[in-house]
């Protein structure tokens, strides 16, 4: 047996990452830097450089409202997904093993269809003559169709459904890893089911919760198609704001400022979630 000191098997030389790093530098970092340069032009035709006017406009009262409203939408969608997703993941682990693949398939199904198709399905569900309205009218609960499409509520529900797999899958993984004996132990020590859930299950599932929230949140705030088809043209979120400047006005400098602001905000949120994730892992393992 050799006593020569070798690298641990899990450590790989860093240079193996260089092709990827080069590709990222060329096709991701460089365009981003160019975007940064473009954002300092003061006019749409890009002749006057060296102005912060676009940045000021992005972060003025109105721009800030749009940004905060977009983040608030993300929070609403994430909260709803978490409630639905947690319940689903919880019951998934308690159902007969032969049903589980079926449930996983159903959960994954939305991921296998195009986001446009999923969104149009929701138009059919929420429309004035849609499934929800027809059902409520048949039951005699409402006289005239409710307005569900093109409302905030409709948008939040749709996004929560569309992004649900992103929440459920990490949750299932996290809940699966919890040793069932812990709940039994907790119960045998006299804790009620609610106490066990609060003190044992939730803290141990926290890494999964945070991973799910992170994915759902970032997917919800950037979901341009669902936002514009279900929310409509009078709701303005960052993706639509950006698209509007590019497509209707060809104002690339302002669009660049909007997109970089949005990107920075998303990165900030993601790092915040990541920090929480690290803390929670420490909590769960420690």
């Amino acid at each position: 047996m050799s006593t020569k000191k070798s690298l641990p098997v899990t450590a790989y030389p860093l240079w193996l990452a260089s092709p990827l790093a080069l590709a990222m530098l060329l096709f991701f970092i460089t365009p981003l830097l160019m975007l940064g340069v473009v954002s300092f032009y003061s006019d749409a035709a890009m002749t006057q450089w060296g102005s912060v006017a676009n940045w000021a406009k992005t972060l003025d009262g109105f721009g800030l409202t749009v940004l905060l409203d977009t983040l608030w939408l993300g929070v609403q969608v994430t909260a709803l997904s978490l409630v639905l997703g947690f319940a689903l993941a919880w019951s998934f682990l308690r159902m007969p093993a032969r049903l589980q693949p079926l449930i996983i398939f159903i959960v994954m199904l939305p991921l296998l269809t195009s986001v446009v198709v999923r969104t149009f399905a929701w138009i059919v569900i929420l429309g004035r003559q849609g499934i929800v309205n027809n059902f409520l009218m048949d039951l005699g609960l409402i006289e005239a169709p409710l307005k569900l499409l093109y409302t905030r509520l409709g948008l939040v529900v749709t996004l929560a459904n569309v992004q649900l797999p992103l929440m459920v899958l990490p949750l299932i993984t996290a809940l699966q890893r919890i040793d069932m004996n812990l709940s039994d132990a907790s119960a045998s020590l006299g804790a009620s089911e609610w106490q066990t859930f609060k003190k044992i299950t939730v803290p141990l599932a926290l890494p999964g919760v945070i991973a799910g929230c992170l994915l759902t949140f970032s997917a919800a705030i950037t979901a341009f198609i669902s936002q514009s088809l279900i929310g409509g043209g009078q709701m303005l979120f960052m993706p639509m704001y950006l698209y509007q400047q590019v497509s209707a006005l060809s104002n690339f400098p302002f669009a660049a400022a909007i997109s970089l602001t949005f990107l920075a905000t998303v990165i900030l949120c993601v790092s915040l979630f990541n920090m929480l994730g690290r803390l929670s892992r420490g909590y769960a393992n420690g």
């Binding site: 138009i123 059919v124 004035r128 499409l149 093109y150 514009s228 409509g232 043209g233 009078q234 639509m240």
Partner: peptide, 19 residues
């Protein structure tokens, strides 16, 4: 107004849904 559509294509499909 029942809808301010994001684009003319989306507006046209709203007739289909009776929106």
């Amino acid at each position: 107004l029942a809808a301010v559509a994001a684009n003319p294509g989306a507006l046209a499909t709203l007739f289909q849904q009776g929106q």
